[in-house]
Amino acid sequence: MSTSASPQHRPLRADAERNRRRLLRAAREVFAARGLDVALDDVARHAGVGVGTVYRRFANREELVEAVLDEGVRQVAEIAKDALTDDDPWEAFERFFLEATAMLAEDRGLREILLLGGHGTGAALETAQALLTPRVDALIERAQRSGQLRDDLEPIDFPMIQLMLGAASERSRDVEPGQWRRYAGLLLDGLRTRRDGPTALGTPALTGNEFYRSMTGHANESAR
């Protein structure tokens, strides 16, 4: 009986693996900037290869999206795991809250799959549920037991809060990419039980003109 690896599981040649990693990096950048509804031609162009190279490495668009988003989901899960090593329950919760929000604010594709679902990425969502849910639940439970996090916060509130912050990020990203930090500070103050005053907000509020540009720019883009 032959012991050689099957074609599906045979390790890629070094140049083929480099091309695969190059495509994944390009896809991650394109999905982060534009979301998941982009053509493979756009990914290939960003990677500097022909679209045929994409299809040689990935059977279809869904397989490429799955590979890219699985990597992102695992990174968010690792943030939660690292936060759980913090001895202070509130600092652990706050650390994960801000680091996860920063990642989702900068990565539109990851935000779409984690918070909105769809796009044929069932495996990525299963990974998110298996890795993220128990860790986020533990972060919330620890902070509540310590009396630092309001006890009426439910784990399901977390993705809803991220949806709000994601909307703020999407609206203001072309005017002030870090604007979400202001609202994250406001939300954290609302979530924490504290007596020592409010958290310093990470960035000033938009001016009236900046707010108008954010709103009208998004509306014009949506109408295209």
Rank of each mutant, 00 (worst) to 15 (best):
L98Q: 03
P159H: 04
D87I: 00
L40E: 08
R182I: 13
A67N: 04
N220I: 03
D196H: 06
R18Y: 06
S172M: 02
L12T: 06
L186D: 08
M160N: 09
T193K: 09
G197N: 07
I161S: 03
A32S: 12
V136P: 07
T127Q: 13
A205E: 08
H218T: 11
H46R: 14
A102L: 08
T193Y: 04
S169F: 01
P11G: 04
Q129P: 00
S222I: 11
L12N: 05
A33K: 15
A105M: 03
A184G: 01
R18P: 01
E63T: 15
V43E: 04
T121D: 13
D86S: 03
T203Q: 12
P204E: 04
A124I: 05
S4T: 14
A128Q: 13
H119G: 13
T3G: 15
D107A: 08
S6E: 09
S169Y: 00
G117Y: 07
G120D: 15
A67Y: 00
L165N: 06
S4I: 09
S222G: 14
T207L: 10
A102V: 06
A27C: 10
A138T: 14
R34I: 08
F31G: 02
E112Q: 15
R95A: 03
R173K: 12
L186K: 06
R195I: 10
H119F: 15
W90A: 00
E210L: 02
A27H: 04
E126H: 03
L40D: 07
G166Q: 06
A123M: 09
G147S: 12
P155E: 13
P159N: 11
R57G: 07
R213G: 03
L64M: 02
A100T: 12
L187H: 03
F96D: 03
R142D: 14
M103Y: 11
V43F: 11
R173T: 08
E126F: 02
